[in-house]
Amino acid sequence: MDLGLAGKKAFVSGSTQGIGYAIAEALLREGAVVTVNGRHEDGVRGAVDRLRAAVPGADVSGIPADFEDPAQVQGLLDRLGDVDVLVNNVGVFDVVPFDAIPDDEWRRYFEVNVMSGVRLSRHLLGGMLARGWGRILFVASESGVNVPADMTHYGVTKAGTLALSNGLAKLTRGTDVTVNTILGGPTYSDGVARAVEEIAQAQGVPADDLKGAIVAENRTSLLQRFIDPDEIASLAVYLASPLSSATNGAALRADGGVLTTVL
């Protein structure tokens, strides 16, 4: 199926690995022109090289910037031209007891998980409205709806992302610009894989056994396995396309059935 994305210019934040990388690759396979992003120049360069190898003829470039640093974000914005599709994917997460999260860590989570989307959307939404077409997509989490007790800072920022996305959508009334959010579930991204391997090593158990135990503990999951980043990317590319024109201001679940509510 042709999703109508050929020649569309896309920017995906936090896209040198994991879900962001999978979305960038899927957009490239649809003929989009994609700019990827990561914190470090070498990581960005490596991602660009891998994407060019995976998608021959791909028009892909990269801009390094750490979204924890507003000055680096401004440098990225200064280099970023017009964008048709903005994917706000960059984020940080960790499992930490609530009383062990200091103020500085709360600020870091807001800078990366929330303000990244604020700054990018503020910079690009006006151009989309002026040109008459555009897509802004936030990659959030079911943790923004069912906030984990041991990841409160993460859940709060993802709830903030949901509110931001919904508010921005109201600015697009009567246009062909849309703003939507994906509620991802437990996904076996590179970061999760590293965490599982580190914990497994510390506990002296095989990583696959720990991975299975984590899935088994999630009693509400209908999928009963980790989600693959490509499965999130499939929904993201549809929402980025002209085919999704009637979907706006929505939070769409790709959570593997973890959330138990009807809506």
Rank of each mutant, 00 (worst) to 15 (best):
Y154A: 15
V147C: 14
E197A: 15
A58L: 04
A22I: 01
D84C: 10
L259G: 09
V92P: 02
R253Y: 05
D176C: 11
R131F: 00
D228K: 09
T187W: 06
A163V: 08
Q203M: 14
Q74W: 01
V237Y: 06
A236S: 04
L86P: 02
D94R: 14
A26N: 03
R108M: 08
A130T: 02
I101L: 15
V192R: 15
L80S: 12
V90S: 12
R108H: 08
K170N: 09
F93D: 15
Y21L: 15
A149Y: 02
S189H: 07
L222W: 04
A54I: 01
V92E: 10
V237F: 05
L223Y: 05
R253T: 07
M1A: 14
A47P: 00
Q224L: 13
F11I: 06
R107Q: 15
F98Y: 11
L168E: 03
F98R: 04
L80N: 10
D78R: 11
V55H: 09
A254W: 05
A149M: 08
N113L: 14
D208W: 01
D255M: 10
L77W: 03
L223A: 07
A251W: 04
R135Q: 08
T260G: 14
T152C: 14
V87N: 04
G20T: 07
F138L: 10
V48Q: 09
V179F: 00
T220E: 09
A100Q: 13
A140W: 02
I227C: 13
Y109I: 02
G249C: 08
N166T: 11
R45K: 14
A193P: 00
S165W: 06
E231S: 08
D49Y: 01
D66T: 06
G160W: 06
A193N: 08
A32Q: 03
A26C: 04
V139Y: 04
F93K: 15
P56C: 07
R39H: 06
I101S: 12
L183A: 12
